[in-house]
Write a protein that binds this DNA or RNA. Structure first.
Lengths: 210, 210
DNA sequence: GGGGCAGTCAATCGAAAGGTTGATGTCGGC
DNA sequence: GCCGACATCAACCTTTCGATTGACTGCCCC
């Protein structure tokens, strides 16, 4: 047998780290070589080259976000592969993670076998997406009619933060007419007829995160 | 030494269950006697009297909510104590859990020692609140000026679901004037001036959950 | 190179939301 | 018994939002 796969666990929850360790360290071809409770620490540890695969949470209590950390880690030459392991499957999160160079995106409610399989896939240099996540991306591809454009998502996110059309127009250097125009398209795609219900629908479909 | 404290782990995430088992089973006076991946199963297992303390998540993927399960468990005579162990500290969740008869409310990012201490406290029949949670409740008591009333929270929750004043008034059997009146008070307490920003502020302060 | 889509903007109109003032009834505490 | 907090409702007015229509640009794809 060859060298075991070295793992770095990056999660701010001690319980989750212990759980991952318990689940993964029992696999003979895995070895947990380090843990990080913050994204910053994960970046620093990954840079030392101690591990082959990083299991990265997206939400840390404070400080750097998991997607930023992923980008920082994968930017280096000879970087370890980064597997996102998070609770929520929001479209925005998935896209951000993939753009940041993540090799995979898993949900924390995944069964241990799936987890182990994804780690091996990532270590081999291939992409690993959880079935739910892959399905969501397929959906997004298959029905582009109801997929919001980048600009529309941008407007919707600001609406979700409680901004008025006036405030949004200033923030994005647009006229109010344009903001309204985007909103009309958003409402049509989401099947709603008000800003609050658009935010509710988008949150439910995990188009935006709260 | 006396009988060890029997624990039931109720969480839909295998990784979290493994983590809790790893963290708690090493304590000599604890013994994990059962696990449940759903709230329904947790209620059934708790009814058999196998455990002294239930560690209960609030959000399960589908089906019964943790707060409902807590109410069902604590309703029985000679019921085990229920410790809520969740990711978020929303006011609404905490109040619901306490009303359901929970003996304590902990956050998943708690260090293992705190966890163990809370379990012992609960097993001894006393209340165990995480410092952050206790602090939040203190705040709520100390500054009742900005604490929303039950009715106001009810209205705000419906606003967050995207309902119009008209729809809310019908749902709660009120006039629109009353709904507006509640909203005016909500805006004042949250320091905002629109329904969407009220939802945003309430979400940020975890007054309502998404 | 024409058609479709995304993004931008304008004008208009009715509906909804927000601000203000004021009023009533109930409940609990001092 | 009185006062304050809560909940309820009404009338009025202003602002914002949403719906509609139409138009111009840049871009990609066939």
């Amino acid at each position: 047998m060859t060298e075991p796969i070295g793992l770095l666990l990056a999660d701010d929850h001690p319980v989750v780290r212990a759980g991952l360790r318990a689940v993964l360290d029992t696999e003979p071809d895995f070895r947990v070589v380090a843990e990080a409770a913050t994204a910053e620490r994960a970046v620093a540890l990954a840079a030392t080259g101690v591990c082959d695969v990083v299991l990265m949470d997206l939400q840390f209590g404070s400080g750097m976000h998991g997607a930023e950390a992923t980008a920082a880690i994968t930017a280096a030459p000879d970087a370890p592969r980064v597997l996102i392991l998070t609770t929520y499957d929001s479209d925005a999160d998935i896209l951000a993670a993939v753009e940041a160079g993540a090799a995979g995106y898993l949900l924390k409610d995944a069964p241990p076998e799936e987890l182990a399989a994804a780690v091996r896939t990532a270590a081999a240099g291939r992409s690993a997406l959880a079935p739910e996540v892959a399905h969501r991306l397929m959906d997004r591809m298959r029905t582009p009619a109801q997929a919001l454009t980048k600009r529309e998502l941008e407007v919707l996110r600001l609406v979700g933060e409680g901004l008025s059309n006036q405030q949004i127009s200033k923030k994005l250097f647009l006229s109010q007419a344009t903001v309204k125009s985007h909103l009309v398209h958003i409402y049509a795609k989401l099947g709603v007829d008000s800003r609050t219900s658009a935010v509710a629908a988008a949150t439910a479909r995990r188009l935006i995160r709260r």
